[in-house]
Amino acid sequence: MTTVRTALAGARLVLPSGVVEDGRLVFSGAAIEEIGGERTAGDLDLTGYTVVPGFVDLHVHGGGGASYAAGIAEEALTAARTHLEHGTTTTVASTVTGEIDEVCRQAAVLSELVEDGVLAGVHFEGPFISPGRCGAHRPDLLREPDPALVRKLVDAARGTAKMVTLAPELPGGLESVRMLADLGVIAAVGHTDSDYAKTLEAIEAGASVATHLFNAMPGIQHRAPGPIVALLEDERVTVELINDGTHLHPSVLDLAYGTAGAGRVALITDAMGAAGMGDGLYPLGPLQVRVTDGVARLVEGGSIAGSTLTLDVAFRRSVTVNRLSLSQTVRSISTVPAALLGLADSTGSLEVGKNADLAVLDSESYELVAVVRRGEWIRGAERFTR
């Protein structure tokens, strides 16, 4: 089988060392072969475009009208493909609260897609969360984080579990955090009523991620800083942020970056099935969600129910609204989450030997125009090859 060698020239490249204008990148097969070198006659001209590493989403529930929580392989493939076409070349599938046995069944289905290379892992969001901060999770299905139950979910994923979100203040919470850390699974603090002191205990026990920081947790009070301050100030913690203009005011996102820095922020979508679709009714696990003007809310109660965000939009907002640099944005949308998942050797940055996972953006509008995953053009090839 002949290996296809493709050279992109004239592009702005966002590399770990900085931004290079009029750059050249060559990929052969699934990997990046060369960065730099002299332009040749066969190179594809990407003048006016910016090439960044493919996006890595730690936290996404669905897209394209499909949900990972359905526990149906075809739906999971649709969701993954939808986000792939929007630049997300590495996806962790997130479940939602359900009956334990049903979530275990979903995990078994998703684990097969991890083994096939479609997904990068499974994230369990719920049922081990606070009833007072449950958001778009059914309150009657919530459970205390008994380590035995948490372990049951992790085992159901057959080695593909990457993260479990839980409320550490609940009975069994700290014990479960310690167990997850021992298993090499990320323990994430989220959907929590934890105070500052308890959150610090969770971090000491091994919690290393804040699930969609600011959302579904107590706000900052001047005498009760709560979990947000504890999570922001500790260098061991990576904070998830949803930059869709609905979950966070731009100034709040700026505050998080000013405190934690791009090296501790992971931009996520928290997207549900409506991502890449239009307004209407959609399922989210056992609940119904109505999307109006792109904002997803529960039919009953009106709580925000995930997002309809895709990471190309989050990238564009970060650069154009929040005025983050290209390097900062790439760190948060690719490099940091790839490292959290243990994939830093293969993806998350443009470096020789790593996967040819690329997102190509218009250098003026930052609109996504092309995607390459492991050397395969997913979309946009005709723009440069005709």
Results as ranks from 00 to 15, higher is better:
residue 1 M to R: 13
residue 4 V to P: 03
residue 4 V to W: 00
residue 8 L to P: 03
residue 10 G to S: 00
residue 18 G to V: 08
residue 19 V to P: 01
residue 19 V to N: 04
residue 20 V to Q: 10
residue 21 E to Q: 15
residue 21 E to I: 02
residue 23 G to S: 05
residue 24 R to P: 02
residue 25 L to A: 04
residue 27 F to V: 08
residue 27 F to Q: 04
residue 29 G to W: 07
residue 32 I to P: 00
residue 38 E to F: 01
residue 39 R to Q: 00
residue 41 A to K: 07
residue 44 L to T: 00
residue 46 L to V: 00
residue 48 G to E: 03
residue 48 G to L: 02
residue 48 G to Y: 04
residue 50 T to Q: 00
residue 52 V to F: 03
residue 53 P to W: 03
residue 55 F to H: 01
residue 59 H to D: 06
residue 60 V to P: 02
residue 61 H to P: 11
residue 64 G to A: 10
residue 66 A to P: 10
residue 67 S to F: 04
residue 68 Y to M: 05
residue 69 A to Q: 12
residue 80 A to C: 11
residue 88 T to Y: 06
residue 89 T to A: 06
residue 89 T to P: 06
residue 89 T to Q: 01
residue 92 V to E: 04
residue 95 T to D: 08
residue 96 V to L: 13
residue 101 D to Y: 06
residue 104 C to G: 14
residue 104 C to L: 06
residue 110 L to Q: 05
residue 114 V to I: 09
residue 117 G to Y: 10
residue 118 V to E: 13
residue 123 H to Y: 11
residue 124 F to V: 12
residue 138 R to S: 15
residue 140 D to F: 07
residue 141 L to K: 03
residue 145 P to Q: 00
residue 146 D to W: 07
residue 147 P to Y: 09
residue 147 P to K: 01
residue 149 L to R: 13
residue 153 L to A: 10
residue 155 D to H: 12
residue 158 R to E: 15
residue 161 A to E: 08
residue 163 M to W: 07
residue 165 T to I: 11
residue 171 P to F: 09
residue 173 G to C: 10
residue 184 G to Q: 05
residue 187 A to P: 09
residue 189 V to S: 04
residue 189 V to P: 05
residue 190 G to E: 04
residue 198 K to H: 12
residue 203 I to Y: 06
residue 204 E to V: 14
residue 206 G to T: 07
residue 206 G to N: 02
residue 213 L to Y: 06
residue 214 F to C: 11
residue 215 N to F: 11
residue 216 A to L: 07
residue 216 A to F: 09
residue 222 H to P: 10
residue 227 P to Y: 06
residue 228 I to W: 01
residue 228 I to R: 02
residue 229 V to D: 00
residue 231 L to A: 11
residue 234 D to T: 09
residue 240 E to Y: 09
residue 243 N to P: 06
residue 244 D to G: 12
residue 248 L to K: 06
residue 253 L to M: 15
residue 253 L to F: 15
residue 257 Y to L: 15
residue 258 G to I: 03
residue 258 G to M: 08
residue 261 G to I: 12
residue 262 A to F: 02
residue 263 G to V: 02
residue 264 R to Q: 13
residue 273 G to W: 03
residue 274 A to F: 10
residue 275 A to K: 05
residue 275 A to T: 11
residue 283 P to T: 12
residue 288 Q to R: 14
residue 288 Q to M: 14
residue 288 Q to D: 15
residue 288 Q to W: 13
residue 290 R to S: 14
residue 292 T to D: 15
residue 293 D to Y: 00
residue 304 I to Q: 07
residue 311 L to A: 08
residue 311 L to E: 04
residue 313 V to Y: 04
residue 314 A to L: 10
residue 317 R to P: 06
residue 321 V to C: 05
residue 322 N to V: 07
residue 323 R to V: 04
residue 325 S to G: 15
residue 332 S to I: 04
residue 333 I to W: 03
residue 333 I to M: 13
residue 338 A to Y: 09
residue 339 A to H: 13
residue 341 L to I: 12
residue 342 G to A: 11
residue 344 A to C: 00
residue 349 S to H: 03
residue 351 E to R: 14
residue 352 V to Q: 11
residue 353 G to H: 09
residue 354 K to H: 12
residue 354 K to V: 12
residue 356 A to S: 10
residue 366 Y to I: 01
residue 367 E to R: 13
residue 376 E to Q: 14
residue 376 E to A: 14
residue 381 A to F: 05
residue 382 E to N: 09
residue 384 F to Q: 04
